[in-house]
């Protein structure tokens, strides 16, 4: 109880510090760089009243949703497959890690050349970003299942379905959830980068458009919306993630 109240107090303090720093940055760099907190919040709320903003938001969310879905399905499937075949997993893992660490943004032109300028390029780019962590986490989860668990299942004469349902899934689920959380963030990143580089629609486009036309109010407000969405969604997923890891 005390811990909890302390946590709330500390959280409030952190938010306060962020607001003060923000206001301080505004005082230092001026209106060419960003708008102050209160004004930004008002403008951001105002944005939600304009139909054109909803169009951009829908565009981004649709692309994001598809890329997340594809990343999850393909990522988990590939991860399970690589995990089941030890050799394939060992061959593939460092390749995937390398893919994870390269600046994928340089690949975007290729994606554009292959997929054209429509939403499919954005989706593909989101998948490239988001799928790898899902594969890596799933692969890691399958690889580190303690063999004794599977032997126990055999000793209890569980059918393959029962083994999957009662042993395999519960054993790998928490790690897969962690992978999906990271994949979530990276899909969003990929889609936004795609929109920033070449698109006429979406939240990323709004930001880059604001930068290019020196519309500081728009840039700051949209940035705030992106951050709040990312942090909010991530915190919710993190809570789910922790619960899964604890209930193990």
């Amino acid at each position: 109880m005390i811990r909890r109240r302390e946590g709330l107090l500390d959280g409030a303090l952190i938010v306060l510090v962020i607001l003060i720093v923000w206001q301080g940055l505004y005082a230092y760099a001026g209106a060419v760089a960003l708008t102050p907190p209160w004004q930004t919040v008002r403008y951001a709320i105002g944005l939600f009243g304009t139909p054109s903003f909803w169009g951009h938001l829908r565009g981004t969310l649709a692309a994001f949703g598809w890329s997340l879905l594809i990343s999850a399905v393909l990522g988990i499937a590939l991860g399970l497959w690589l995990g089941a075949f030890r050799f394939a997993g060992d061959v593939a893992e460092p390749m995937l890690t390398s893919l994870y660490t390269i600046p994928k943004v340089t690949l975007y032109p290729v994606i554009l050349l292959l997929f054209g300028l429509g939403p499919s390029a954005k989706i593909a780019f989101g998948v490239i970003h988001g799928m790898i962590p899902v594969v890596l986490f799933t692969l890691g989860a399958v690889k580190t299942i303690r063999p004794v668990l599977l032997r126990t299942a055999r000793a209890m004469r569980l059918s393959p379905m029962q083994t999957a349902r009662h042993v395999l899934v519960p054993a790998v689920l928490p790690e897969i959830a962690s992978g999906l959380r990271v994949g979530f963030s990276l899909c969003l990143l990929g889609v936004l980068i795609g929109e920033m580089f070449a698109s006429q629609r979406g939240i990323g486009f709004l930001i880059i458009n604001g930068i290019n036309s020196h519309n500081v109010r728009l840039t700051t407000a949209v940035t705030l919306i992106v951050i709040l969405f990312a942090v909010g969604a991530n915190s919710a997923l993190l809570m789910l993630d922790r619960r899964l890891h604890h209930s193990r």
Partner: peptide, 24 residues
């Protein structure tokens, strides 16, 4: 107190701060 911020850090595309950084 900072943990939630750290955990969500990489969910935010950092270069949205580029204009601010240029101004600074």
């Amino acid at each position: 107190a900072i943990d939630p911020l750290l955990a969500s850090y990489y969910a935010v595309p950092i270069f949205v701060f580029y204009p601010l950084l240029v101004a600074l």
